[in-house]
Design a binder for these strands. Structure first.
Lengths: 309, 309
DNA sequence: AAAATGCCATCAATTTTTCCGATATCGTGT
DNA sequence: ACACGATATCGGAAAAATTGATGGCATTTT
C-alpha cells in the first residue's frame, strides 16, 4: 500500500489515451515522467498494467482490473474534496434544542463553541428542561431536537434517539478512602459506606434501578441536585457516590482530590444522545445540528468518554 | 484534486492518535513532517481539519467529514492492491468456445494471445461454426460459451448474451470514388452504385433488413463469403459495400486504398458479444473467459471500435 | 531501400517535494 | 515561576518527480 494518487491519475490518463505520450500532453507533463510513474506503479503492484506496442499501449487484464479500482479511487477522492467545498457553513436558521441538566452542564458547552464557529449562520436556542418537558416539547413542536440522557426516555415510541457518547459510571471516593486501595469495588462494599445521592436528571431513579438488582441498598446520607455538592462531599470524605465519567473532575472546588474506581457489579453507563420526534421532518438547521453532533461524536467510534483512571 | 495519498494516510493516523507527535511515531516519521503534511492538506482543502490544543488535536466538523472520506479512500486503495494480488492466473481447466466467422477472423486472435498469457493454465478450444450450430452447441452442452454476432441470435429465450463491442457499419469505396468526396452518403445514393454483398455470418440477411426499410435495393453485382474478395473488388472500384469497421483495413491485398464514409440512413452496428445458455452454470474456466472478455472490452466503455477516418 | 514518423524506454541534470532535527511557542499542571 | 507536553517553524539534507535529450523499434511514407 504505497502508490500515490499521482500515479493513479497518470494511469487513468494513459488508459484513456492509450498512448503514454498523448496522456503526458493531456497531463501537461513530459512523456518520461509518465513512463516513470507507470513503471513505478507496476513495480509497486507487482503487475504489468500495460502492454507496450509501437503504436501505443493497451491494458492488460490486470490493467483492466486496476482501472476499475483506479476510477473508484478517483471518484472517492474527488467526492472527498467536493463534499468539503460545500461545507454547510452557509446554512442559516434557528434550531431549538432542549437539554437535560447534565448535558447542559457537562456535555454541550465545549461542542457548542465549535458548532457556532462551523455554522455561524445558525442560531441555537438552548433550553434546559426536565426530561418530561423535553419529551412534551418535542411532541408539541416547541423543540426541534434534544440532547439528553436517552436511557431515561419514556416515550420511546414517538421519539427516536441516537446515542452520542456512553459515559461509564464509577465509584467516586476521596483520595485517602480505604476503598481506593482496591482495584475494583463491588456494590456490596459500597453499600456499607455513607452515600451521596445525586438527584438531577433522574440520577436517583437510575441508581435505584441497579441497586435493586442487588440485595443491598446505599446508605444515603445526603441527596442533592448539585454535582458540585456531591463533589465536595466526596472530596472531604463525607461519603462516596457513583457517577458518570462525564461529570468527573479530579479536583473539587476546595482543591481536594477525588479518585474513581470501577464497580465490579453491572452498572449501566450514562448514555447521552439526541432525541427527536419520530415522524418529524427535521428543519434544515436542526438537521445540520443533528449531523454535526452525530458526526462529531457518533463518528468517533461509539466509545466511552473516559475520565482519567 | 491535488492532495496526496500520503497526506491522507497521515491525516488518518493523526485523527486516530489525536496527537500529531504520536501519529508521527506510529508512522515512523518526524513530528514536523506530519505537521507540514497536515497543514498542506488543510491548505489544499481550504478547510481547517484539526483544532490544535496544548494536549493534542481534535477533529473539526470538516475534519470529521473528511475522515469518513479518508477512510473510504484508504479502503478503496487497499482494495485495489489486494484485488490485484489474487490475480486468477492460477486458474486451470478447459473452455470450449464457439466462434462465428467474423469473430474468428477479426476479433479474437489478438485477444486470445493476451488471454492465454494471463491464464496459461486454461486451454481454449475454439471452433468456428455457423450461428445455428453455435446455438445448438450451447444448448446441448458441446460448447461452454460463444463469441458471436449477438444481434443475429435467434434463440434469445434460452441464450443470454452480452455485447462486447459495437462496430459501426459504413460505406466502403475506392479512394477515387465519387461518393468519397461526400461527408456522408445516403442509402439512396448507394443504391445507384454496383454493390458487393458479403454473405458470411448472415451479413446479407442483416443488410437486407436495413435496405428493406428504404424504397431502394442495392445493385448487387457480386456475392461472396470472403471479406478479402469484397475488399479487393471495392479497392479496384468494381463496386462499393457496407461493412463494419471491425473488418476494415485501409489497404486491400493489392495495395490499393479503401475509404470509408458514414451512411446517413440508419444502419445497425455489428454487435460482437458473448453468448451462453441462460440456465447454465458456467464452468470455472468459462467464467474466467467470460470475465476476461467482459472486462477487457465491456469495461472500456461500450464504445465503438473505430476505423480511422 | 531508405528516410521519416510515432511510439516508448532510459539517463543525467534539475527542480520540487518531503523529511529531519533543533528551536520557538503556547497552555496546563505542579 | 517552572517544567512538561504538545504543536509550529525554520534551514539544510535527502528523496522524489520532472525535464529534455537520446536511442531503439516498428510502421508508414518517399
Amino acid at each position: 500500500m504505497a502508490f500515490s494518487f499521482r500515479q493513479v491519475r497518470y494511469f487513468i490518463a494513459v488508459a484513456d489515451a492509450a498512448k503514454i505520450s498523448s496522456a503526458a500532453a493531456d497531463l501537461n507533463v513530459s512523456q518520461s515522467a509518465v513512463t516513470a510513474a507507470i513503471k513505478a506503479l507496476e513495480d509497486e503492484l507487482e503487475a504489468r498494467l500495460f502492454e507496450r506496442h509501437p503504436s501505443g499501449v493497451t491494458l492488460t487484464y490486470e490493467g483492466h482490473q486496476f482501472l476499475q479500482h483506479a476510477r473508484s479511487i478517483e471518484a472517492t477522492v474527488s467526492e472527498a474534496t467536493r463534499a468539503l467545498r460545500r461545507t454547510g457553513s452557509a446554512e442559516t436558521g434557528e434550531v431549538r434544542v432542549g437539554l437535560t441538566y447534565t448535558v447542559a452542564a457537562y456535555f454541550l458547552p465545549q461542542i457548542l463553541a465549535r458548532f457556532t464557529r462551523a455554522f455561524p449562520g445558525i442560531t441555537v436556542h438552548m433550553q434546559e428542561l426536565a426530561r418530561e418537558d423535553i419529551e412534551s416539547g418535542l411532541m408539541n413542536g416547541n423543540l426541534d431536537i434534544a440532547v439528553m440522557l436517552v436511557s431515561n426516555l419514556q416515550n420511546s415510541l414517538s421519539i427516536d434517539s441516537e446515542i452520542l457518547v456512553r459515559s461509564r459510571r464509577r465509584l467516586w471516593a476521596c483520595a485517602d478512602h480505604h476503598l481506593v486501595a482496591r482495584e475494583t469495588v463491588s456494590l456490596a462494599e459500597i453499600a456499607a459506606e455513607p452515600y451521596v445521592m445525586l438527584t438531577v436528571d433522574e440520577a436517583d431513579d437510575t441508581a435505584m434501578r441497579y441497586w435493586r438488582k442487588t440485595p443491598h441498598l446505599p446508605k444515603v446520607i445526603f441527596e442533592t441536585s448539585s454535582v458540585e455538592a456531591v463533589r465536595s462531599m466526596v472530596a472531604t470524605g463525607m461519603g462516596v457516590s457513583i457517577l458518570s465519567d462525564m461529570v468527573y473532575r479530579p479536583w473539587s472546588l476546595e482543591g481536594q482530590r477525588i479518585e474513581v474506581r470501577p464497580v465490579s457489579d453491572e452498572v449501566p453507563s450514562m448514555d447521552v444522545g439526541l432525541g427527536w420526534r419520530r415522524d418529524s421532518n427535521l428543519s434544515a438547521p436542526a438537521r445540520v445540528f443533528y449531523e454535526y453532533l452525530s458526526l462529531t461524536y457518533g463518528g468517533s467510534g461509539h466509545g466511552f468518554v473516559n475520565a482519567k483512571p
